[in-house]
Design a protein around this nucleic acid. Structure first.
Lengths: 203, 203
DNA sequence: TGTACATCAGTGAACGCGCGTTCACTGATGTAC
DNA sequence: TGTACATCAGTGAACGCGCGTTCACTGATGTAC
């Protein structure tokens, strides 16, 4: 793509360069200078669009949370066709996001940046959390109140298992397993739902 | 502690300095130079004991896997007093290890070093994996064969949930939750075991 | 329609810093006689 | 028991490198008249 002195959309080009670097080398393999070079621009030019390295990284994470929340909401689809089916779709969407957007995922969960220092980040990540909570709440409505755990607890369990599968079996930190991550998550969530009493105990 | 020209046990002192740095600042916050400084020694002295930065980090991880495998084996205790109780103890031991040895844990699972490049590391981590597998296998013996999932799959599920709880709720990457990580893991594993048919469905 | 000018995105050089690593060396330790 | 000497753990200075960041600047763009 030709360009002259002015880039056109350097801000987004830098975000995408950062994404590629993170996806290829992990969140610590990303440097401001390399992102600038990948965008065919001097490192100093970055400062026209971001306050510095951390700010660029935060923007990557912010866009990630945006996509993440949208994907989860789409998968949840207001609990249709059934709370159970929608819940399972949400779990699958989690893993699909991690697989399809590895740069975003790592910026969000493995880059070590504190959401406290970027308030908009905390807000938008809360949106994703809310979707997970709603999916869990919809699920538990089928349960009699006396054995209905808090929705927030269920979403935490599912989130933990999903995140664990991503870190250990998608990223490979847990060595190789005989099953693809998708199958591991699906069976794990299935057993868990059986334990909640939402799936028949036998097979 | 007084010391003269010779340190006495610099090798282990460097490992411990690295552990403290990793625990305090994450696996990327550790540098060879700072570890040397913490051990009150010139950076060049490190090369008397390690091939370089990566080698020191790998030794930290190796010692971590050693402790980890031992703790899991101790908790499993050959399936006594019952396979179920021993399995639950193993799950608790996982989280206890992550809490008590944060430097080791991060070096093992978050430092991004490839076990392939350190063969002894791969071997010793397989030992921990084997303990988890055995615990899962002992557990499933109580199940009728027709609904007995592979032990390796069960251990992968539990490992994923445990690791997820550590990363999200112990390290704080998942925001704050109303429950301590220990409770989240305990309830999550409980529901999962119910789903396997190993705990009574009601309460 | 043409020109003067304000705006501001990107340049290029420079900075101080900490990193991992190397090298010739020094001085403490412990062993042989 | 005392001395000469080999061993080798740690020193101190230096290296090249890439990092994030700053600064005065330049030149493209688009608007006012």
């Amino acid at each position: 793509m030709k360009r002259g002195y002015h880039h056109g959309n350097l801000r987004q080009a830098l975000v995408e360069a950062a994404l590629a670097l993170i996806a290829a080398q992990g969140p610590q393999g990303f440097t401001l200078s390399e992102a600038a070079k990948a965008a065919d621009v001097t490192p100093a030019a970055v400062y026209r669009h971001f306050a510095g390295r951390d700010d660029l990284l935060a923007e990557v994470a912010r866009q990630g949370f945006d996509i993440f929340a949208a994907l989860l909401e789409y998968a949840w689809n207001d609990g249709r066709p059934s709370a159970l089916a929608a819940f399972e779709a949400t779990g699958r969407a989690y893993l699909a996001f991690a697989r399809k957007y590895p740069g975003h995922y790592q910026a969000m969960f493995e880059s070590g940046l504190q959401p406290a220092r970027h308030p908009d980040l905390a807000a938008i990540s809360a949106r994703a959390q809310t979707t997970l909570d709603r999916a869990a709440a919809g699920l538990t409505e089928a349960l009699p109140p006396h054995r209905r755990p808090p929705a927030r607890m269920i979403s935490a369990h599912i989130w933990a298992m999903s995140h664990g599968v991503v870190e250990l079996f998608l990223r490979g930190n847990g060595g190789s397993q005989p099953w693809p991550p998708e199958d591991l998550l699906e069976t794990g969530v299935g057993i868990y739902l059986r334990g909640l009493g939402l799936l028949p105990p036998d097979r």
